[in-house]
């Protein structure tokens, strides 16, 4: 992997982190921690791996993306805005009445959003369906889906995991954002989901374990997933909830809380923006 490419993507991810905290500060509502933990993977997908066209969101040869952990919508929204799917000013309307940027992704209003997510556990099933549909059309397009680790507590995820392997969906790549925290605390204490990679392997998947904030590792894993034939691949990515902003890191309390004025300033300092 070219070092310049990685550095370039890391720069984008840093800018998107700034955008996430500004967006959430403006809306004063939304999910900070899980957006920041997923943004490196989302950056790798939108600005490197996926074939897509912001000028033509419904381009038939596009790769598809499903944010199964729909509460990280701000992370997807800032990436879509940065890519050019809609004006960046729209971000300032997040969660407002009349905005196309709903609290959780809504395919009816937001260009680039494929399905409606937000009720946890349903996105992998939908991604499977998209992958099956693409295969029926002999399409080379791939389907990517990001799940949360807490989300794996939903039984439907495992119904879908079984089905993806049964139908040998090698055009599907799932990524699990393992930030180890959920609203009520540590995932391991609320309802342990470990060992995640072994569970997926037992269901018939190829599993790759990486550091979800190591951009080079994310890119390598995404390339490797494309080479695996006859079975779906899951990238189990160890992440830090709130990554990049020390005051939010490793804190379940920032799961569904937006930054206040002081926290915004501190976050911007953390992210290298020396604004007021």
């Amino acid at each position: 992997m070219h070092k310049e490419k990685i550095t370039h993507l890391e720069d984008i991810a840093r800018n998107l982190r700034v955008s996430i905290v500004k967006t959430l500060h403006k809306s004063q509502s939304g999910h900070t921690g899980g957006s920041l933990s997923a943004i490196d993977m989302i950056t790798a997908l939108y600005f490197h791996k996926m074939r897509h066209n912001p000028e033509d969101p419904r381009w038939k040869d596009r790769d598809r993306f499903v944010l199964s952990k729909g509460h990280a919508a701000p992370a997807q929204y800032v990436a879509l805005a940065e890519a050019g799917y809609f004006p960046k000013e729209d971000l300032m309307m997040l969660r407002r009445l009349g905005s196309h940027l709903q609290g959780h992704p809504d395919s009816k209003g937001t260009p680039g959003v494929e399905v409606c997510t937000g009720s946890l556990g349903q996105g992998l099933s939908m991604a499977n369906g998209i992958a099956l549909g693409l295969r029926l059309d002999n399409s080379n397009s791939r389907t990517y889906v990001i799940l949360g680790d807490g989300e794996l507590q939903e039984g439907q995820v495992w119904e879908a995991a079984m089905a993806a392997a049964h139908y040998r969906l090698d055009n599907l790549c799932a990524m699990v954002d393992v930030n180890a925290l959920q609203i009520d605390g540590e995932v391991a204490k609320v309802m342990n989901v470990s060992p995640i990679a072994d569970k997926f392997r037992a269901f018939g998947w190829h599993a790759i374990e990486i550091d979800g904030h190591d951009m080079g590792a994310v890119l390598t894993a995404l390339d490797k997933a494309e080479d695996i034939k006859g079975k779906p691949t899951v990238i189990v990515a160890a992440t830090v909830k709130g990554k990049g902003v020390s005051i939010f890191e490793h804190k379940a309390s920032y799961h569904g809380v937006a930054p206040n004025d002081d926290e915004l300033n501190e976050a911007l300092i953390c992210l290298g923006c020396f604004e007021d």
Partner: peptide, 25 residues
């Protein structure tokens, strides 16, 4: 080739159908 038996897993079946619809089916 256009028939999918999803096993005894109705929740996943509905979600899969939603995905197939998103893919134009």
């Amino acid at each position: 080739e256009r028939f999918f038996n999803m096993g005894i897993a109705e929740a996943n079946m509905i979600g899969t159908a939603a995905g197939l619809a998103a893919a134009g089916k």
